[in-house]
């Protein structure tokens, strides 16, 4: 397949980043805390003007910025919404983010936005579709993108390709990078009785441009068994942090976002999560240096 390889944007630093929340705009601009980067959901900045853009302008002048889409529906059987691609392009042109990422998921159907990151079967047909959509997105935005592994609660009987192979093939065919969400790995692994460490060990590290961490919630499924829910409403759980440290030992330091989108705490609590992540990144940097010495 002939695919133009768009150039990667300036890279995010291999440090901890935080999701930017409107309730923290003023605190961030007043104190300019030492945070590696900020990430925003692109769709929250698709209004014409007003305070969201003014604050993002000011914050993007002081920090590296990651633009994270939640509404493109790359995993849709239908065509991508070209109007939405244009809106993304205008954000990319305006803010020159250090990274753009989206999900291996779908969220739009029959011109209606379903407001969740929904799962898709992994088959040769869906692989071709996703590959085309990633190509089209990279062309439309003029930049390389990162594609994120999903958290899922169900499997599709028709799937014939493993998720890691699916993502690896999309990355190789399109030149896109991958966003490895370690919390999603834990959620899906527990839900589908897989070994999360094995998932990480098989993941194609050479494509990973960013890591996401977040907190899960717990429920039980119809068989009375443990079901993890990707909730982003708490600190990173200890088992996910341990899996993250394992991931860093395999990949080395990678830009790492802490996602905390619901029940958002005060900024100090978020910053403490970022420092915990920075400490883990420093530890793996030292380990690498020790091995080299």
């Amino acid at each position: 397949m002939l695919t133009a390889r768009p150039s990667a944007p300036t890279k995010l630093p291999s440090r901890a980043g935080l999701g930017l929340k409107p309730e923290h705009y003023a605190a961030i601009l007043d104190d300019v805390p030492d945070i590696g980067f900020f990430e925003v959901h692109a769709e929250n900045y698709m209004g014409s003007g007003g305070p969201p853009h003014r604050y993002l302008d000011a914050i993007a002048r002081r920090y590296p910025l990651s633009l994270h889409g939640v509404g493109l529906s790359i995993g849709s059987a239908r065509d991508l919404d070209t109007e939405h691609l244009k809106r993304l392009r205008s954000l990319v042109d305006r803010y020159r983010p250090h990274s753009f990422s989206e999900h291996l998921a779908w969220s739009t159907h029959d011109a209606c936005f379903l407001n969740d990151l929904l799962p898709l079967p992994y088959t040769p047909e869906t692989l071709a579709r996703v590959t085309d959509h990633v190509d089209q997105t990279q062309q439309a935005l003029g930049t390389r993108m990162l594609l994120e592994n999903p958290s899922t609660y169900v499997l599709f009987a028709e799937s014939t390709i493993g998720e890691v192979d699916f993502l690896d093939t999309v990355a190789r065919r399109t030149g896109c990078g991958l966003l490895l969400d370690v919390n999603n790995v834990m959620v899906s692994a527990v839900n589908h009785r897989l070994d999360p460490f094995d998932y990480i060990d098989r993941f194609p590290v050479e494509h990973v441009g960013e890591i996401h961490l977040g907190g899960y919630d717990e429920a039980i499924d119809g068989a009375g068994e443990r079901l993890l829910i990707d909730a982003h409403a708490s600190a990173v759980r200890p088992d996910v942090f341990a899996l993250y440290e394992h991931t860093l030992r395999r990949i080395g330091p990678v830009p790492t976002l802490v996602e905390w989108d619901n029940a958002v705490p005060d900024f100090v609590t978020l910053a403490a999560e970022a420092w915990r992540v920075d400490a883990a990144l420093d530890a793996v940097r030292h380990a690498v240096a020790d091995r080299a010495a």
């Binding site: 969740d116 079967p121 169900v154 599709f156 009987a157 429920a219 499924d221």
Partner: peptide
């Protein structure tokens, strides 16, 4: 066609998506 590792069609799991 929606299933689990042990081959169940689980309404509680699908309900997570509805709830979301």
């Amino acid at each position: 066609g929606l299933t689990t590792t042990d081959g169940r069609n689980d309404p509680l799991r699908f309900a997570v998506y509805r709830n979301n």
